[in-house]
Amino acid sequence: MDVFMKGLSKAKEGVVAAAEKTKQGVAEAAGKTKEGVLYVGSKTKEGVVHGVATVAEKTKEQVTNVGGAVVTGVTAVAQKTVEGAGSIAAATGFVKKDQLGKNEEGAPQEGILEDMPVDPDNEAYEMPSEEGYQDYEPEA
């Protein structure tokens, strides 16, 4: 019985440690998101679009440190934060509304985080759909 109880105690310690790591990862992701939003706020009209992409990228980098179902929630929060940063930029006159959601080359930025393969159960990952990809044929 002692062996059984000791095993359960060790398992509990492992769960607590994993929860603490997840909590730490979420806190880091939130900190990076805040950094990115402050970065966007300090940019001029020309830099705002690039700044919004930076927020998304920093958040995406930190999301990889967070495991399990938390990833889905962090990704949703990050996307809403990026959308909010863009709205703030438009409201303050840093950028025109028609410039939001495009990178410096004018290509749409939507789907940055949505296409990231995420499995809350950590069982399997699927690649994003290939609808947006084109076949590449090298020139002879």
Rank of each mutant, 00 (worst) to 15 (best):
T44Y: 13
Q99M: 11
V16F: 12
V66N: 02
G67D: 03
Q62G: 01
Q109K: 07
V55Y: 02
V52M: 02
E13M: 00
K21Y: 08
G73E: 05
Q99Y: 12
Y133I: 09
G84F: 06
V70D: 03
V118Y: 04
K43A: 07
P138G: 07
N65Y: 06
T64S: 06
K97M: 01
P120V: 07
M127Q: 08
P128W: 01
A69W: 15
G101E: 00
G25L: 15
E83Q: 04
E57S: 02
D121H: 06
G132H: 05
M5P: 00
K43F: 00
E83R: 10
E126L: 05
K96G: 04
M5Y: 03
V49I: 14
A17H: 01
M1Y: 00
A89W: 12
V77L: 08
P120T: 03
V49D: 01
Q79D: 05
A76H: 11
D115R: 14
M127G: 12
T92H: 03
D119C: 08
E126A: 04
M5C: 00
G73L: 12
G7I: 06
M127K: 10
G47E: 02
T75F: 15
G93M: 13
G106V: 10
A89D: 03
E126T: 13
G41W: 04
T22N: 00
P108D: 08
Y136F: 14
A19T: 03
G73A: 09
L38A: 11
S42Q: 07
A107N: 08
Y125A: 08
F94K: 01
E28D: 06
E105D: 12
K32R: 08
G101K: 10
T64M: 15
F4N: 00
V95S: 11
G41V: 12
V16G: 07
A89I: 14
G111E: 14
K10H: 14
A107S: 04
A89R: 11
E139P: 08
K10S: 04
G132I: 12
A17T: 01
T59A: 12
Y125R: 04
G47P: 02
E35I: 15
G25E: 07
E105Q: 08
A11H: 01
E130H: 13
G51M: 02
V55K: 01
T54C: 10
A124T: 10
A17D: 07
E123R: 08
E126F: 13
G84H: 14
E137L: 11
T22K: 00
V16W: 07
A91G: 10
Q109N: 09
G14W: 09
Y133H: 02
V16S: 04
E130R: 01
T72K: 08
K12N: 01
I88E: 03
P138C: 04
V95H: 11
G86I: 13
V66T: 03
G25K: 13
K58L: 05
D119M: 05
K34E: 10
K58G: 01
E131L: 07
A29L: 12
P108Q: 14
L113S: 09
K96P: 13
G106I: 10
G41R: 10
G132V: 02
K96Q: 06
E110W: 12
A85C: 10
K80N: 14
I112D: 11
T75H: 03
S42R: 05
V77S: 02
I88M: 10
K97G: 10
H50Q: 01
E57H: 06
N65V: 13
K12G: 07
V15C: 03
Q24E: 09
E13N: 11
A91S: 05
V49Y: 04
V37A: 08
V48T: 02
V3R: 14
N122V: 06
T81M: 13
K43I: 13
P108S: 11
T33H: 04
D2L: 11
K32L: 09
K43N: 00
K34Q: 04
E35N: 14
D98H: 07
N103K: 01
V77E: 01
A18C: 04
P138V: 14
G67H: 14
V37K: 01
Y133R: 12
G73S: 06
E46D: 12
T72R: 10
K12L: 06
T72I: 14
K23R: 11
D121C: 04
K6A: 08
Y136H: 11
T81H: 02
G68Q: 05
T75V: 14
Y133F: 14
K32W: 12
N65P: 02
V52P: 01
E61S: 11
A140E: 06
E131R: 04
K21R: 06
H50D: 03
V118C: 12
A11V: 15
K23P: 01
V16H: 14
I88R: 03
N103C: 15
G67N: 01
P128K: 09
L113W: 01
A11C: 00
E114N: 10
E61M: 07
K45F: 11
Q109G: 02
G51H: 01
E57I: 02
G25W: 02
L38I: 04
A124I: 08
A76V: 10
A85P: 04
T33Y: 07
V16D: 01
V48F: 06
M127C: 02
E126Q: 08
A78E: 02
K21E: 01
E13Q: 13
G47T: 15
K60Q: 05
T92F: 15
D119L: 09
K10N: 04
T92P: 03
D119P: 04
A11K: 00
L113H: 10
A17V: 03
E28Q: 03
E28L: 11
G25Q: 12
S42A: 11
E137N: 07
D2I: 13
G25C: 15
N103H: 14
E46P: 03
G31P: 01
S129Y: 07
P138N: 12
E130Y: 09
D2F: 11
